[in-house]
Design a protein around this nucleic acid. Structure first.
Length: 442
DNA sequence: TCTGGGGTCCTAGGACCC
DNA sequence: TCTGGGGTCCTAGGACCC
C-alpha cells in the first residue's frame, strides 16, 4: 500500500456548521474484514466474510462487496454463503484486530485525551479541548481519517454532532469512508425522519411494542407522551428514548471505566452429553477468565456459568464467594459446583460459559485472605497460576495448563469425579498442583 | 434465519436488617 | 405479635450493542 495515496471511494464528506459540535464518533469500516484484506491484498475487491468457518459459525464481519449480496454480521455462515456463494471465508485473527485497534486508539489520543472506546473499532472523542491546537471539529476529523489511512491503510467514518447519540447515528449514515457533520440547527431534520430502530438501544424486543403504538419514526416517538411510552417499554427505556428522540443526550464522553465482568463462552462443534465433557469446558473457561483477571491485577467475588442446551434454552447461575479470588482452581471448583447443582437429566449441552464479576483490585483480596487466616492455599494456587501464566507468555505456542485439557476423555472423567463439590465454598480446592495437600484448619 | 463471543445495563423477586 | 417501608445484597433472565 502506498503511503499518502488518496483516501479511496469516499462516501463523501457532508460538511456543515460544526459550531458546538464537539463530539466525534469514529467507526472503522468493516473492521475485521478490512484488517484481513490488508494482510492479503489479493482479496481486495472480493466479498470477504470473517467468522467461524465450520459448523455453527456466524458472520463477525463482512466486506462491503459481500454486503451487496445482503450479507450482514451475526448472520449464520451457512445462510451468508447461500446468499453469496463466492465469498471468501476467513477465521478471525483476534491478535491482528487488537493490534490495529491499539494503533487507532493511539491516533485518537494524539488529538484529545477524552476518548471513550466502545469496542475494538469505534470510539467517541470529545474535542472541545483540542480546537485551539488542531482546528475546527471537522478539520480534526479529517486529520484523524488521514492518519488512520496513512498509518494503518484502513478507512473509518466519522460523525460529528453536539451530542453522542447523534454523532453515532451520523457516522453510521455516511459509511463507508465518510464524514458527516450534523449541526445544532440541522439536528431534527437529521433525526426525525429516521426509523426508531436506528436509535441506539432499540432492538427487536423494544421495536415491537413501539410498532403496536404506531410509532415507526423518531419524530413519532418524540411526540408520544412519556406515560404512554412507559407503559409500553418500561420506565428507564421510555425516558431514555424519549430524550434521544427530542435531541436530548447529556451523557458526556468519558474514558472507559474499569471492566465489570470477564467472561468466556464457547459453542461446541457437537453437543456435549457427559458431565466430564462439560467439566472440561468449565476448566478451560475458568482458566481463561482467571488468567485475564491476574493479567489485569484484579480479583472477582462472583463466579457464574452459562449453559445452553441443544434446543437453545439457556441457564445462568452465579454464586458469590466468601472471598474474592483470581485462582483458576477456585473459579473452576465454583463453576463445577454450580453445574452439578443443576442436576440435569441427560442434557445435550451446546454452549458452556464461565464468567466472573464483582471485580476489585487484587491487593485488597490478598489482604482479606490473610486476615481470614485461610490465605495459604489461596496463595499457593495463585503461585501455581502465575507460573502457568509466565510459561504461557514465554512459550505462546506450547500447551501450558491443566493436564486434563491435554488428555482424552477417560482421564478427564476420573479427575473430575474426584473433585470434591465443597471445594468452592471452602476455597481450598486445587486439583492442579500435585504438591498441594488439602489440610483444612481443624 | 437452526442462530458467535465479548461485554453493559435493567428488571424483578427474595432475603435480611433496621 | 402484626404490619409497613426503605435499603442493600444476591440471583436469574433478558435486551441490547458491536
Amino acid at each position: 500500500m502506498g503511503r499518502s495515496a488518496d483516501l479511496p471511494r469516499s462516501a463523501g464528506e457532508r460538511d456543515g456548521d460544526d459550531t458546538g459540535c464537539n463530539v466525534l464518533h469514529a467507526d472503522m469500516d468493516a473492521f475485521f474484514a478490512s484488517v484481513e484484506i490488508r494482510a492479503r491484498p489479493e482479496l481486495r475487491g472480493l466479498p470477504v466474510l470473517v467468522g467461524g468457518a465450520e459448523g455453527r459459525g456466524v458472520v463477525a464481519a463482512a466486506s462491503y462487496e459481500a454486503r451487496r449480496y445482503g450479507v450482514r454480521s451475526a448472520m449464520s455462515m451457512g445462510q451468508a454463503l447461500r446468499m453469496c456463494p463466492k465469498a471468501v471465508v476467513i477465521s478471525p485473527s483476534r491478535g491482528a484486530y487488537t493490534e490495529a485497534s491499539a494503533a487507532i486508539m493511539k491516533i485518537f489520543a494524539d488529538f484529545t485525551p477524552v476518548v471513550e472506546p466502545l469496542s475494538l473499532d469505534e470510539a467517541f472523542l470529545d474535542v472541545s479541548g483540542a480546537l485551539g491546537l488542531f482546528g475546527r471539529p471537522a478539520d480534526i476529523a479529517r486529520q484523524i481519517r488521514r492518519r488512520i489511512f496513512d498509518e494503518q491503510q484502513l478507512t473509518c467514518s466519522v460523525g460529528i454532532a453536539p451530542i453522542k447519540s447523534v454523532a453515532k447515528l451520523a457516522s453510521g449514515s455516511c459509511k463507508p469512508n465518510g464524514l458527516r457533520v450534523v449541526s445544532r440547527d440541522g439536528l431534527f431534520d437529521f433525526l426525525h425522519p429516521l426509523p426508531v430502530t436506528a436509535l441506539w438501544g432499540v432492538g427487536r424486543a423494544t421495536a415491537e411494542p413501539l410498532r403496536r403504538l404506531g410509532i415507526r419514526t423518531v419524530a413519532e416517538l418524540a411526540q408520544t407522551p412519556l406515560d404512554t411510552l412507559r407503559r409500553a417499554v418500561g420506565s428507564a427505556t421510555a425516558s431514555h428514548l424519549h430524550n434521544l428522540a427530542n435531541g436530548r443526550d447529556d451523557r458526556v464522553v468519558s474514558p472507559r471505566n474499569p471492566e465489570k465482568s470477564i467472561s468466556t463462552d464457547r459453542t461446541l462443534l457437537h453437543d456435549l452429553l457427559t458431565e466430564a465433557d462439560v467439566a472440561r469446558e468449565l476448566l478451560r473457561g475458568a482458566g481463561e477468565v482467571s488468567e485475564r483477571l491476574r493479567h489485569l491485577g484484579r480479583t472477582a467475588r462472583t463466579v457464574g456459568i452459562k449453559i445452553r442446551f441443544a434446543d437453545f434454552t439457556t441457564l445462568t447461575r452465579v454464586r458469590t464467594l466468601a472471598e474474592p479470588t483470581d485462582s483458576s482452581s477456585v473459579v473452576y471448583a465454583a463453576s463445577l459446583e454450580l453445574y452439578r447443582a443443576l442436576d440435569l437429566d441427560r442434557p445435550r449441552v451446546r454452549l458452556v460459559g464461565v464468567k466472573v464479576e464483582n471485580l476489585r483490585p487484587a491487593g485488597a483480596a490478598t489482604q482479606l485472605a490473610l486476615d481470614w487466616g485461610s490465605g495459604q492455599d489461596d496463595n499457593r494456587n495463585t503461585a501455581a497460576d502465575r507460573v502457568v501464566d509466565a510459561l504461557a507468555a514465554r512459550f505462546p505456542d506450547a500447551a501450558v495448563g491443566p493436564a486434563t485439557l491435554l488428555r482424552t476423555t477417560s482421564h478427564v472423567d476420573h479427575a473430575v469425579r474426584n473433585m470434591p463439590a465443597e471445594s468452592a465454598r471452602s476455597q481450598v480446592g486445587d486439583n492442579k498442583s500435585p504438591r498441594t495437600t488439602r489440610n483444612r484448619r481443624s
